[in-house]
Structures are given as structure tokens and as C-alpha cells.
Design a binder for these strands. Structure first.
Lengths: 193, 193
DNA sequence: CGCCTTTCTTAACTTTAGTCAAGGAGTTGA
DNA sequence: TCAACTCCTTGACTAAAGTTAAGAAAGGCG
């Protein structure tokens, strides 16, 4: 479990053993049940969340219905949402499954950065990397049709199809549930032909 | 000019006078003519670009035509694109207008961070902030129709309508130029009614 | 000046997503 | 077990975006 975490971190910056120990000592591991509503806008500190196992979903409540915009699964990160940003419509983070998280609370953050400047470098590299990824996803989304986006999802995160209700995926793909149904049918028919 | 830069930075972290001086001494101010192709994927270092005046455009070349995905105007930032990210299709950055940039070259970056750790904090806060903004834009994009996205652009960045050819804006809005034309006509007709 | 390219719009037509309504399958819980 | 959900699909219809083709207006450049 920690192995996976440190393997992931090593992509950005290999840590020494003592540094790893500090993370284990200081970071919070938290387990949440499926269905738990983790956070809503305002409660979001500037902490990093690292999904060790399970699945989180980010969604907005707009006129009473949910608009899903993101899924976070194993080895994925949720970076600080609150830094210098105005309040969007109601944002929620919920557990799609039982989920194990590593949380860097913002209180500890300051202390840790002072003692271990390399951790700040890590956070910088991490958020720079997440930003680059997010940009790339956004760019891809803009230039793809709903059907292409669905096919892209099949390629890159096929597990989501099994883990998450389709109407949430539809909203994640920027379309309505009925359209996703039709796209799936179209794709299957093409595959058969 | 520098005032604007430091006002902007102060949103994240106020700098002392000596710190400001370091930035001025070390950072590169570069002026580019309209039409200059600044960078293409691969040439992107992990530098931060800060637009002081002018306008940059990011686009991909796909099957011979351009897919515009971002515009950077005054007081906006272009964060490192290359950190731990696989090569996307050909990405270009070009100047839509004569543009004055502040560039933090990656060579100087390391040195500066060692001498002034607060600059690393600044970069961290900056990229965290840009990430949060980018997330929010992406979320908004997903849940909006092309027409809503156009109206949103009118509200938030009306200047782009004047500065940038519409077919580039269309692609930025995730639609075709002809559709943008029709949307504009629809919107005008509604406004008249 | 006049040519050529870029930009923008329009129209006709096709394709696809949105909307509204309904129903079936599968779950949950009283 | 039955009722009430949630989830997913389908159909009929509407609205809007993609496609193709054409042409007008504006700008750049020899």
C-alpha cells in the first residue's frame, strides 16, 4: 500500500527512507464508506488527497440535479481546490466506493515544508504535473465529439464503466444519459459490422 | 508594467522589495512580434510564462488544421507544460499580437529556489491556483451548451472577440466556425426581441 | 491599384444531441 | 412479498451542430 504511494511519488521525486517515514508519520490515512459525502465547497482546505483505493466523484448540484465532472481512482490525486479561487456553484466530493485516502492536512503542511523543503518541491512538481494533465484532458475534450470522448474513456479508463453508474458517466462526458445510451448502441453496431 | 506583475503576484504572496529586485534581475523579459511561433512541444521547458501585454494562443495541428485550445492575455500565466507528461499531438504556442513576456527559464529556476525558498512557495501556490482555475473552467465547459459557452465568453473575456479571429474562437469553444456564426445570429435575434 | 488570402456568413442537407415520455430490469427496504 | 427506487434503454420529436459548398467583405502585399 505504501509501496504504491512511494512508487507514484518517485515519478516526480524519489524520496529517502527518512522522508518516507515522515510522510507516514504525519499524513492521515482515512477510510470512508461508499456513499459518504466527503466535502463540499467551503470545507475544502488546501490539502492534497491521494486515492489509495476506491473511487471519488466530484459533482455540482445545479437546479436539484447532479452534474458529475470528475472521478478519482487509485493512484490519482485531488489537489487543493480552494487556493485563490472564487466560490463556484456547490461542489461536492463523494465516495463512489469504500475509499482509502491519504490526506495532507493544511496544518501539518506548513510545518512539514519548513522542516523538509523537498516536500514543497514535491507538491510544486505534483501540481504542475496535474495542471499539465488537466490542460491536456481539457484540450482533448474540446476537440472530440461525444462519441470520440466515450471511445477515449473506454481506452483510458475502462474500469470506470464497471464502477460507476452510466448517467454519472454521461454527465462526465458532457452529455445526457439518453445520448450515452445511443452512443453505446451505435458503437456496438459498428463493432459488429 | 512591473507594478502590474507584482500586484498579480501579491494575490498569491506579497513580495518584499529585495525579492522583487531579484525577479527583475533574473527573469527574462522578451518581446515577440505578432505571428511568431513561440514554442512547439518538445521545446517547452519547465518555465513559467507570464503575459505582460499582448496575447498568446495555444493550438494543435491535427490533419493539417489548427485546433485552438487556449488564449493567454494580460496578467495570465502559462505554467510548465512538460512536467511528467507524455507527448500530446503537436502543440504550438503562437503570438496573436505583439507580446511582451516574462519568462522564468528553468536554469535560473533551480538557483533561485535555493537562494529564495519563498519563490518555490510562490510557484507552488501559482500552479495550485492555475490548476483550480483550470478545473473550474473544464467543469463549466462540460456542463454548458455551445451557446452558453459563447455567452460565458462574452461575459468573462469580451476582449477576445475583438482580438482574435472567430474561427479560432470557435475551436476554443469546441465547435465549428459555422456553428459559431449561427450562434451569434441567434443571440443577436434574441437580444432584439 | 488589383490580386490573393483570410475571415466571416449563408444556405441546404445530414447527423447527432436534447427533450419528453414510457417502460423494463434490478435493488432496497418496509 | 410488494412497493418504491434507481438505473438503463427506447421511441418520437425538436433543436442544434456538423458538412459541404459558395460567396461577400476585408486585409495584406506585390
Amino acid at each position: 500500500m505504501e509501496t504504491e504511494l512511494f512508487d507514484f511519488i518517485a515519478r516526480y521525486m524519489p524520496l529517502t527512507e527518512p522522508e518516507k517515514q515522515v510522510i507516514i508519520d504525519l499524513a492521515l490515512f482515512k477510510r470512508y464508506d461508499k456513499g459518504t459525502i466527503l466535502l463540499r465547497e467551503g470545507e475544502l482546505s488546501n490539502a492534497y488527497y491521494f486515492v489509495i483505493s476506491g473511487c471519488l466523484r466530484a459533482y455540482y448540484m445545479i437546479d436539484g440535479d447532479e452534474k458529475t465532472t470528475a472521478f478519482y481512482t487509485e493512484l490519482q490525486n485531488l489537489a487543493p481546490l480552494s487556493t485563490v479561487s472564487k466560490t463556484p456553484p456547490e461542489l461536492y466530493i463523494a465516495c463512489v466506493e469504500d475509499t482509502l485516502l491519504l490526506v495532507s492536512t493544511s496544518n501539518t503542511e506548513q510545518l512539514v515544508f519548513e522542516q523538509f523543503p523537498r516536500f514543497e518541491t514535491l507538491c510544486r512538481l505534483l501540481s504542475e504535473g496535474l495542471l499539465a494533465q488537466n490542460q491536456a484532458s481539457f484540450d482533448q475534450f474540446k476537440n472530440a465529439s461525444p462519441e470520440q470522448r466515450y471511445l477515449h474513456l473506454l481506452e483510458t479508463r475502462p474500469d470506470l464503466l464497471q464502477r460507476v453508474p452510466l448517467h454519472q458517466l454521461a454527465s462526465y462526458l458532457g452529455i445526457k444519459a439518453e445520448s450515452l445510451s445511443r452512443i453505446r448502441r451505435r458503437v456496438q453496431q459498428k463493432a459488429r459490422a
